[in-house]
């Protein structure tokens, strides 16, 4: 009985590896490029999925975009240039870390703004 549980446990632990092994294999010249690849693919949203980054998706378009990110890293593009390439085609929707500009000002400052209002009203009520 214990053996069955052990087999199930090991299989569950290996699931992410099995899923990952179905994806494309990316070979990098150095660790810096590799860490940039993982950081970028985690910050780019899969345009076909309800939610989730291209790193976490096996959708065909996510695989294609991972390949594009990989090719662009190898060709010497900066992170900003790669993000701009994706946003230009799929919009700000595809960027999990939207830029801090006038267009996204509310997105960045909105939560703080609401917190200040609620805090002010709360303390006024208390006094």
């Amino acid at each position: 009985m214990h053996l069955i549980f052990k087999i199930i446990g090991v299989t569950l632990l290996m699931l992410p590896q099995l899923v990952f092994s179905q994806s494309q294999e990316f070979i990098f010249e150095n660790e810096e490029m590799e860490s940039r690849f993982y950081a970028l693919t985690n910050e780019i949203r899969c345009p076909k999925c309800t939610s989730g980054s291209i790193a976490s998706s096996n959708a065909p378009i996510a695989e294609d975009l991972k390949r594009k990110v990989y090719e662009q890293i190898l060709s010497g593009k900066t992170n900003d240039e790669i993000k701009a390439y994706i946003v230009d085609r799929y919009g700000e929707f595809a960027d999990y870390r939207p830029s801090f500009d006038s267009w996204n000002l509310f997105l960045w400052l909105g939560p703080g703004f609401f917190l200040l209002i609620f805090g002010y009203l709360f303390f006024r009520q208390q006094n």
Partner: peptide, 13 residues
Amino acid sequence: PQGNLAIDLGVTG
């Protein structure tokens, strides 16, 4: 075949 033009068009599928 690689979907390169499709990506440039912002295609998702």
